[in-house]
Amino acid sequence: MLAAKQVSVPGRLEAITTALRPGQITAICGPNGAGKSTLLACLAGLHAPTEGVALLDGHPVATLPPLTRARAIGFLPQDGAVAWDVTVETLVRLGRLPHRAGPEADAAAARAAMAALDLEGFAARPVSALSGGERARALLARVLAGEPRWILADEPLASLDLAHQLALLARFRILAAGGAGVVLVLHDLAQAMNQADRVLILDQGRLVADGPPETTLTHAMIAEVWGLDAHWLGEPGRRALAFSPS
């Protein structure tokens, strides 16, 4: 269980309390500046809240030994920076840094992560020679190589075309089905509605909704938080958002 208990960061988060379960995809949604990335960083143990605490299986995340935390929680930042032009295999093997399980075990985990994201043919390719979609997969493979129980990704779909977005979300679904907890910051409300098991909606640092997407991403909530007049079309699981002209 990954939980936030009264987590507060001045100017960004106000007393957020929630408990996330493994085996689910949880989407964190909200307008720009709502505190989504800050909440994700607090849950990942990368940002210490000024009040409250983030807990992993009942232990404060911030005080866990860094390597223990790193083995349990994989974090995919938004920027996707890679400072040196390493090959995909070298990049993916960085995910094994917290483990020190030996070269063979590390190589096997990196190979499995690359295979899971169809990157075997790219192992020797420099990162600079990858397309946006290939790069996003390589960066996620880096996280998967660490075999974390929790995967926290900050806007992983940004800058991806629709086909790559769906492929990446399908991969997250497989990971959740395998027992991992997946927490995604998402801007695309339709993707959150169709793909997430649970949605947290933040507005100006406050948690204003927490539950299944059909009960949280309602017309009234979208109007209140995003200021948009939007209606859901289609069947559950295949929803599309239609906006009324303002």
């Binding site: 935390r69 920076a81 400072a83 880096r142």
Partner: peptide
């Protein structure tokens, strides 16, 4: 060495990999 390797992914990713 290992911490510098992790840092190529940026500071937050490096910290998530256990770098202090």
């Amino acid at each position: 060495g290992p911490a510098l390797d992790a840092l190529m992914l940026g500071e937050s990713a490096a910290r998530s990999l256990g770098v202090d």
